[in-house]
Design a protein around this nucleic acid. Sequence first.
DNA 1: TGGCCAATACTG
DNA 2: CAGTAT
DNA 3: GCCA
Length: 848
Amino acid sequence: MIAPRAAALGQPPFADRAILAKQLRFRAVARKYAELLEAALQDIEAAEREEQEADRDRRRRLKCPQHAAHEITSQEVQQQQQQSGVADHQQQTSQPPPPDPALAGAAAAAAPLQPSADIGASVIDGGAGAGEAVEGQAAAAKSATRSQRPAAPPPTAVSLLASMAEAAGGGRQAGSGKRGDVHRAAVAGTPQLQASAEAPAQRNGKRARVAKGKKAGGGKEGGYLSGLCIYVVRLGSVTRRIRDMLLNRVLDAGGAVTDTYDAAATTHVVADASVPRDAILAHAGWGAHAERDSVVVASLAWLQGCLAERALLPLRTDIICGPGAYVLPSQCLAERALLPLLTENIICSPGAYVPPEPEPAPAAAAEAVARAMAAVDAQHGGIPPRPDAAPPENDGGAGYGKTKLACQRKASDARDVWGKGAEKPNKFIADVLSEIGVGFRFANWVGIKVALLFGRGDRRVGRWRSYSAAATVVSGFKRPLKTAEDLRGVRGLGAKMVQNIAEIIETGDLELKHALLAQLKPTKDLCGLKPMKDLCGVWGLGPMTAKKLIEMGITSIPELRRRAAEDRAKSLLTHQQAIGLRYYEELQQRMQRDEATAIVGVVSAAVQKLCPGAGCIAMGSYRRGKETCGDVDVLVVPPSGQEVCEWIMQPLLALLHDQNFLTDDLAGGPTEATQNFGHFKHRSRGTAPEESVNPLSKHVMSYMGVCQLSPTHSHRRIDIKVYPRSLSAFAMLYFTGSDYFNRSMRFHAIKMGRCLSDKGLYPVTRGSKGEILWRGNLCKGLYPVTSGSKGEILWRGKSIACMEEKDVFDALGLEYRAPHERSIDESTASAMLEAAEDEEGPGDGPAN
DNA sequence: TGGCCAATACTG
DNA sequence: CAGTAT
DNA sequence: GCCA
């Protein structure tokens, strides 16, 4: 992380300081979640221990939870772990310290590494072990119902929120006593701050909470870190002084320390998470995998959290919620490091949002695609690309045509996160053009026949694109346009458009606009588009339904409400539309990033309860770094070592409903889900192409609904998706968007003879008019696929494996784009911005 | 002159 | 299948 | 309306 380092150097630049402040706030929130989660888990474990006393024998035979349908609970999961001998890393203080330090070390190291490996295995080979598990399920179900309401109820969305607000806002002025200390510690999330808070604590008139202990060699008996043997890597922000300070405190807490990494003794390696892992590994002198596999590399934040809260915090919580924490389980290495993917992209806590660094462009794109394609071809016997697709080595990735696709450009607007958007002096021009574009689009939707539209055939689609594109081009110029002549030759602006712009510059308006709007309005009110726009604002209600309603005389939301209320038969609106209407105003609003953070936090906490170690990642505009979000997208991926965990969906929804967090279901809700969960989902309609090719797609679960953090908060749209681990890269790519970016990337894939979806990247052979370019039987491993509605797709092979998003870019010969570089919006047409960006730089239009 | 940056899922 | 959604 |  950059900010802390800058802070260490003294006066950080302003921007860095702002970022730092933000990150600290986020860390406080994340820490708060960890704390709440911890408390909840403790309650659960307490209840569970009682259970254990009661029927220890029976549960000894309980080995795995299975995909356990609807009765799976956190208690159950906990039981599995304890039963199968995996020591829970977040042990309670009551738990006696292990007798033998060496053994304890091994156990402690193993625990966080595979928090649920056994569960994973059981899920994967669930078919075989099903019979054995039935009994266990029954037992677990019983115990679950008995302890369903632990002494302290689980944190509700509301209480979580309250705590959040406290943590976020009141870090400094937090209440007195222990609570305050916790907060302070949470805020002091960086080594520098930690250190400065430690040394001259008196300066602030506050007592140093941790007493200076003697530097004992072995550590106190029974301390909260007893059993651990910690080695702190002196890299990055960890100076000698800081390391010594940390080690002293570890000793005070009953832990052991080593000066060098000792394979036999060291249980936890702690390092600054901002240091590249290669450097860490090299520093510690680990060569063999076997050696690496047996040790936890934890982030500094974790250790500091432990010290601040005087408790052994669960590592896995840190992995999920903490910025930058990571481990190196053997599974990770075996799976080409999926875990780093999840952690680096942070997950539920936004603490990890780090502004972009100018990254050197890897020039290996062409090489990468050549390699990827060669690999596939070797496997499948050769897939000829479309004849019109130029070989990728021609221009290192663009491959076809002159025009760059969105996925080949960097998004120009990630501005709202780190810096102000530039002024747009030509906005008044763009607005006019944009309005016309919108007009054409609506005309297209409802099939309004406008005289203007019929020059040569029906040109509605194209003119919508042209005007929207022109609007974006114009607003891309940073200098005021004095004369439209400057625009001659700019890509995306033809003769007619230049003429239009000239008129706007001279008169401030465009005659065409009024002519168009006049033809689009059935009534006198604002351009007649308004009813259409308003009605389409209802979730689940699209242009066709809107058109029908307008024809019925319903032209506004209040009117729609009246009519819907009178509609006894409930046939006017679908269930989804009714919900959309109920929350119409609220769902129109975008939420602040912080609120999205809180929402993901609630989901994440629930996920952790049900399936510890599972990844819970905020996708969509949140992941792209936007300051506001229209909805919240959450992707759940299985814990390390597990391939699938779609069983989690139903208990998760139930839990979130119980917390009054979820208020309404729009799709994939409990009802349907219940039916789908028992026996792997039989869709009523014919087998989707994906399913016939990729059996993993059966393990994808998707939910759409409405949630609310507290009664005083607005209702928000939320999507929750569960994907198998090996599809997570595709899912992340897809759900991070933007929509437009996705389309461009898939378009590119087509040109490359590939087919990209949220579940894979397939070799494909197709002809634009159904002609057969290549036919099967020559190639083993390709499966026939039902042809799409366009009758184009003929054959599709096995998906090219991609464990990380970057692999997908590589396989397509594209330069990697970080999430914040993918914010390309719909109106950004194919061609523009090139003139501004590629030739003269974004700040220089031809207007000078 | 034809095309206009995708592929797939859920609901009724 | 059509409409709407992602 | 723009572009190949």
